[in-house]
Amino acid sequence: MIRFFEVGKHYPPAQTALADLSFEIERGEFVFLTGASGAGKSTLLKLIYREELPSVGQILVNGRSVASLPERKIPYLRRTIGIVFQSFRLIPRKTVFENVGYLPRIQGAGRGELERTVERALERVGLVGRERAYPRELSGGEQQRVALARAVVGEPEILLADEPTGNLDPRLSIEIVELLRSVRSELGTTIVMATHDHAAVRRFGGRVLTLSRGRLAADRSLEADPSQGVQESSDLAPNDAPGLSTTRDGASPDAVAADTRSDDQTGTEAER
């Protein structure tokens, strides 16, 4: 579904946001993307939805090279990718219905189809009945649900979530991750969630890609620990999570941990 081959992203004059990234994410996988601030998580996601172009390497999404996609075809790639941000990015003067209905509208849905599609998306995130509300009338958790509904309204093949729980308390964070997991199980959507939410990653487990200084420091699977998830968020070091079962790239957990904890100056400056 998503393949990175020796991908690098550099910004002039000499900042490296990502370097030598190679990994593969299968269809229907749920992958956590972790790393310190500035490690390159957002840049990696931007490369997938072609907000940024790689400086080197090859990225394939659904078998197609994203970098060589002509400008005019980018919108069609993005219609297959749902995106959720930490800041929600809802339009304040639009209702919930209008915020969620952007994609069906640009695809030319008639009134009836638009209503049905939006209703279905709102049902998925548990916001039926709030169609006419404005974002300012909603709580942070509800706003993120609206953003999630907007991301899944087109039943995308891929859902990218960039720190979706960053503005939420631990309880709401767990709700959002549970929603993402339900989207995955209902629609078979491949989900990549960049997060600092240590507790959420431990609670749900699964595949975790860890970035450090723009490099893939670890690619491993965590066992789920349902007892986790009530503490405040913190950076997740690659080897401090219980249940570490494997490292796909064979990196030494100690080395990875040291790398992640270090103050990643280069990456912090480079990440945009």
């Binding site: 919108p75 993005r78 219609r79 339009i91 952007y102 994609l103 907007r150 087109g154």
Partner: peptide, 16 residues
């Protein structure tokens, strides 16, 4: 601008 950004993210063409 904010709305335009959202439109781009959901796959709206420049024409739209």
């Amino acid at each position: 601008l904010e709305e335009i950004t959202v439109l781009r993210l959901v796959g709206a063409t420049e024409f739209f």
